[in-house]
């Protein structure tokens, strides 16, 4: 097990894995959001090749009302 921070909350995941896999493990839907890893945007096209390591910080953002 490793620990990552997902939207500010410390979360255990089974192992190091790519972004596509962590989305599935965390039970997120497959679209409708964007993701940043350690403050840097991760494009959907790179989900397969971007690896999440211990203590990484992930932001998963979706559309909301705004002014």
């Amino acid at each position: 097990m490793i620990e990552v921070i997902v939207n500010g909350i410390r979360t255990e995941i089974s192992s190091e894995m790519n972004v596509k896999e962590i989305i599935k493990e965390l039970k997120y839907k497959q679209k409708g959001f964007a993701l940043a890893l350690n403050g840097t945007f991760v494009a959907v096209s790179t989900y397969d090749t971007t690896i999440i390591y211990d203590n990484d910080s992930i932001e998963i953002l979706a559309p909301v009302q705004g002014g």
Partner: peptide
């Protein structure tokens, strides 16, 4: 129309409805 992004919890789809 202006819109924004905010953190989404796993399994939620509130953003999808708004969008």
């Amino acid at each position: 129309v202006t819109v924004a992004l905010r953190r989404q919890a796993a399994g939620e789809n509130a953003g999808g409805n708004f969008w």
